[in-house]
Computed example of a mutant assay.
Amino acid sequence: MKQLLILSGKGGTGKTTIASAFIKLAQAKAYADCDVDAPNLHLVMHPFPQEKASDYHGLDKAVINAEACTNCGICLDACRFHAIEKHETSHTVDPIACEGCTLCAYLCPQQAITMEKAKAGELKLFSNGDEHFSTATLLMGSGTTGMLVTKVKEQLKQVSDATEFAIIDGSPGIGCPVIASLTGVDLALIVAEPSVSGISDMKRIIETSAKLGVTIAVCVNKSDTNDELSSRIETFCWKEGIFFAGRIPFDPMAVRAVNEGKSVIEYSCDSGTAVRQVYDKTLQMLKETIRR
Rank of each mutant, 00 (worst) to 15 (best):
M1F: 03
K2D: 06
Q3A: 12
L5T: 11
L5W: 04
K10Y: 06
A19R: 00
K24I: 07
L25Q: 08
Q27E: 15
Y31M: 10
Y31S: 01
A32G: 10
C34N: 09
D35S: 00
L43G: 04
A53W: 01
D55R: 11
G58M: 02
A62N: 08
C69H: 09
G73F: 02
I74A: 11
L76Q: 13
L76H: 11
C79V: 10
S90M: 05
D94C: 11
I96E: 00
A97E: 11
C101S: 08
A105C: 08
C108H: 08
Q111N: 10
A120Q: 03
E131C: 12
H132F: 14
H132T: 03
T135Q: 08
T145Q: 15
T145I: 03
G146D: 02
V149N: 01
K153S: 02
K157T: 09
S160D: 00
D161G: 00
F165G: 06
I167Q: 05
S171P: 01
S171V: 00
I174P: 03
C176G: 12
T183K: 15
D186Q: 06
A188F: 02
L189D: 04
V191L: 08
S195L: 03
G198S: 08
S200K: 14
M202I: 09
M202H: 01
K203E: 15
E207G: 01
T208G: 06
I216E: 07
A217V: 04
N221Q: 05
N221S: 15
S230N: 05
I233R: 11
F236G: 01
C237G: 05
C237P: 09
A245E: 02
R247P: 02
P249R: 09
G261S: 03
G261A: 05
S263L: 04
E266T: 04
C269W: 03
S271M: 15
A274H: 09
V275N: 04
Q277T: 13
V278D: 06
L283K: 15
L286D: 01
R291D: 12
